[in-house]
Design a protein around this nucleic acid. Structure first.
Lengths: 117, 117
DNA sequence: CAGTATCCACACTGATACTG
DNA sequence: CAGTATCAGTGTGGATACTG
């Protein structure tokens, strides 16, 4: 039996949740798995995500040190985003989450239950 | 190379994020891993979580079919919460997240970087 | 191309008070 | 013991418009 006060776990959990809290963070990280990508190229992978919002999310992830921002001094400007080692380590977890999500949806279909939106 | 529009992933991701979105959801699920638990017993495991908030979170998780709520017709009342199979399947992922969180904190200490709050 | 600056609306959290 | 109801504060996301 594990008997823990939440305070002993809070730190790790909170840290993980910070990363996941952004509405698009998970998917951004996911798309960065394939290697460096430019801003607009990344933007095009999303539906319903605006320019400004993507910028905000990227800044956040940068502060968390999950992604790296490489600026090329060119005209026109070129900026590439890539994952740091820290970010890459999230891979299995993200896949795990996605798989669970699929399972969840399947389960709801089988039991003919509608899942909450 | 994976080339996906986000729309094909959105559903699975969103579903997973719904579960994680609650500030305490992850820890609630974690604490339920040890088997059924009563309301106040669960409440005592948290610092800074109020009665009302816990109720809300539990209702949410119940709607997601991640936990089961068993009411015993007694005086005084007794209500036990437990994980559904769906909830139990989240276990590895939650552990993965926690581990990553620890690693993250370690990394920040080593590099002497302060991590964002 | 890759941003920044505002602003607003909404959802979520938590405090407090009351109930069977 | 295990709730419900209400309400206020806060932060986040998204829309829009402007910049080098």
């Amino acid at each position: 039996m594990i008997e823990l006060k939440s305070s002993e776990l809070t730190c790790s959990f909170n840290t993980a949740q910070k990363v996941l809290s952004g509405k698009w963070s998970l998917m951004i990280i996911f798309h960065l798995m394939n290697g460096p990508i430019r801003f607009n190229e990344l933007l095009r992978k999303f539906d319903g995500l605006t320019h400004a919002s993507l910028t905000k999310q990227l800044r956040q992830l940068e502060n968390f040190r999950l992604i790296h921002r490489e600026v090329y001094n060119q005209v026109p400007p070129k900026v590439e985003y890539s994952l740091t080692d820290l970010g890459k380590k999230l891979y299995p977890t993200i896949i795990g989450l996605t798989d669970w999500g699929s399972e969840y949806i399947e389960h709801c279909k089988i039991t003919e239950a509608s899942w909450p939106r």
